[in-house]
Every structure is written in structure tokens, then in C-alpha cells.
Amino acid sequence: MRILFVCTGNSCRSPMAELYFDDLCRRAGRSDFLVRSAGTCTGDGGTVSRGAASVMQALNIDSSRFRSRSLTPAMAAESDLIVAMTASHRQAVLALAPDAASKVHLLLDFDGGGDVPDPFGGSDACYRAVFARMKPALENLAKQLFR
């Protein structure tokens, strides 16, 4: 299964989702998942933000090889599941790839609903708080897909 996490700059939320979900797959022995992320308004080749790297480091997840990618229609088409951080990201995906409507979901729909706030430019504590909101949804998604 190919999963694509989407946010704005592909430097904070979607990379944390990608890296953590990929780690969940690895720990569950699930090599049948390809986990990626992309941004609706970014360039290719950027690194994760300092705050996101700090959150991942605390979980013993290496983010040093991560590079940002700009969302393309081809990425949407080749993904089996697209998980957006906010309703506006969902709309951006649909504007780019209208045929993807049935496979686009909001991350927090897997844990109570709502949008994942953007920690960009915030303190490490802000990044930790945002990831703490994302983590149960990512784990619920994994439980659902790993059945």
C-alpha cells in the first residue's frame, strides 16, 4: 500500500507523519507499505525543520535523509491513501487531482477530527504538542491498516 501524507511546506507535519508511520510499519514488520509525504506549497530537496527533527530524534527516528517534495498529480494518482493535515490541504489535493477524492482523508479523522495545527516557526514545545496531537491518529491509522 502506498500512503502519502500532505501538508504545506513538507518540512514539519507531513514529514513527522511519514517518518513516524514508516517507523510503525518497520516495527510491525510491514514491508508492504510505501510511506511518503509532500507539500502543497514547497520546493523539492529541503530538510525537515529543526523542531520536527528534534521530535523525531526523541523517538530515535533518523530524519537526516529526509528531503521535501512538491505534491504532483502523479504522486496523488500513484497513492492508495492520501492523508492531509488540514481541510485546506485536502482541497489543494483535490484541485490538483480531482480523481483522488475517494482516497483523501484528514489525519485527525482517525482520532476525533479537526485540523493539525502548523508548528512552523514555533518552539520545540510547540512541535512536541503538535506531534502529540498527531500520534494517536497515526497509531489508529496503523491499527486499521495493519489488520
Rank of each mutant, 00 (worst) to 15 (best):
V93D: 10
S79P: 06
A17H: 02
L107F: 02
A84P: 10
A53H: 01
V93H: 06
T72S: 14
T86F: 00
R27L: 02
L108E: 02
C41I: 13
R90E: 08
F33R: 05
V35A: 03
D32I: 09
T42S: 13
H89E: 02
A87D: 09
S49D: 11
F21A: 04
E18K: 12
G46W: 01
V83I: 15
S79F: 01
Q57T: 13
Q57R: 15
F33C: 05
S37N: 01
T47S: 12
H105C: 15
M85V: 08
A84M: 03
N60L: 02
D32W: 08
C41H: 15
V93W: 10
S68N: 09
V93S: 10
A38E: 05
S70K: 12
T42Y: 08
D109L: 05
G45Q: 07
R67E: 09
G29A: 03
P73M: 01
D62C: 13
G51R: 03
L81F: 03
C41W: 08
P73N: 00
L96Q: 02
G46S: 07
R30I: 11
M85W: 00
A38M: 10
F110E: 02
T47C: 09
F110A: 06
C41F: 15
L24M: 08
A77C: 13
S64L: 10
H105K: 14
A74R: 12
D62W: 05
P98C: 00
P73S: 01
L19M: 07
F33P: 05
A58M: 09
A100S: 14
T72R: 06
A77G: 13
S88A: 12
L81E: 00
T86G: 03
V104N: 01
M56L: 03
M75C: 10
L108Q: 06
T42L: 09
R30P: 06
S64A: 15
G51H: 01
R90Q: 14
R69V: 06
S31A: 14
R30N: 12
L34P: 03
L24S: 10
A74G: 10
H89D: 04
A38L: 05
D32S: 11
L107S: 08
L96T: 03
T47A: 14
T42H: 08
T42G: 09
S37D: 00
A95Y: 10
F110G: 04
F21Y: 07
G45T: 05
Y20N: 08
D44A: 11
I61S: 03
